[in-house]
Design a binder for these strands. Sequence first.
DNA 1: AACCATACGGAACGATGTTCCGATTGACAA
DNA 2: TTGTCAATCGGAACATCGTTCCGTATGGTT
Lengths: 209, 209
Amino acid sequence: MFRLTMPKMTKQQGGGGVADMAGQAPRRRADARRNERALLEAAAAVFVTSGVEAPVRDIAARAGVGVGTVYRHFPTRADLVVAVYRHQVEACAEAGATCLASAATPYAALARWIDLFVDLLVTKHGLAAALRSDSAHFDALHSYFLDRLVPVCTQLLDAAAGSGEIGSDLEAYELMRGVGNLCIGADSDPRYDARRLVELLIAGLRRPY
Amino acid sequence: MFRLTMPKMTKQQGGGGVADMAGQAPRRRADARRNERALLEAAAAVFVTSGVEAPVRDIAARAGVGVGTVYRHFPTRADLVVAVYRHQVEACAEAGATCLASAATPYAALARWIDLFVDLLVTKHGLAAALRSDSAHFDALHSYFLDRLVPVCTQLLDAAAGSGEIGSDLEAYELMRGVGNLCIGADSDPRYDARRLVELLIAGLRRPY
DNA sequence: AACCATACGGAACGATGTTCCGATTGACAA
DNA sequence: TTGTCAATCGGAACATCGTTCCGTATGGTT
């Protein structure tokens, strides 16, 4: 519980005041910054060829770094995955408003946005599976996706319900999990077209008549 | 490639003639039969509490047997899972004809049968996940389910297409994989109601007009 | 009773995620 | 420039899997 040796305080860093929270990320050693970049690039490259479930050792090797270094920068494999895909998740989240603004009807906007979400999942090998992978590992991944995207989906769902195009009794959480599940294994099986099934699901959402 | 010592032939067993194929399972030692039963029972019990991904060692321990014995009876964990659920899969397959005979329309029969299938998956912890679990392990499980159930589903799908209730451009394989995927994680998450989403999917299947 | 193929048990192997800790080094003070 | 030391690194080590191996025990037959 207690640290045996307290780190020495340097003059810049306060002892725990709120000032710590206000600034940007603290200055880090050059090699630390370099390794984090290398890790992100290596992970992205490995994920493309071997999927997101690639062994940590492979990523470390590719980055020319020891496994310990991986865990220093990313407490868990899931955190690394989140870091790699953060930009794309962010883009997907922001696309929600765009869809709503540019589509003919709220239902069309929802369909369009879900399609973007499916793209995100199907493009990366095993991302969908990892998302739903028995969340012992990959817990952070699951949480991040949901935290960021569920609100967006809720907004689209509400709009479509408000326009009377769909029923209003489905939570965004359920829809996103359903779509995510449908995308599992969509790569690596030409006989299975996840996008088609997602379309059916969205079609089933439409208010009858 | 070659066995160093050939097993002795006993008088009942021919040297490789077709007679081997004709008869029932060959007589096995009493302890072997006993252990197989114990393993099936232990596995069933452990699956209920820990899910189908429970460690082989746990099952072996529960059966009072060494791990080697597990693998002597079931070449792979997936084979054990298949053995445990074979009866229920069989029942589900046979229910296909019943549904078709007793439901008001072929589409209703399809919906009813899919519901039975969902029951099968959701009831057993992690069965759906295992079915789609990165088929390195669990390959046999995946194959068995598909081999046995896809033909049944095809029949129901064809009937519903024939009656004009649904479009005819969806393969049974895709539908079953979609439904299976939707059921992943349905246990262990009260916020996610797989049955609801499957209903939406089936609803989306209905011919629009 | 003797024999031996069948079957058993669990140590051992290879892969994985994660933790630990002694060695290294970048950045700052003198 | 040099000394210092906390931050950082590297990879051995640990725990947990599925699976294989092989020496030992045993059931059934002769």
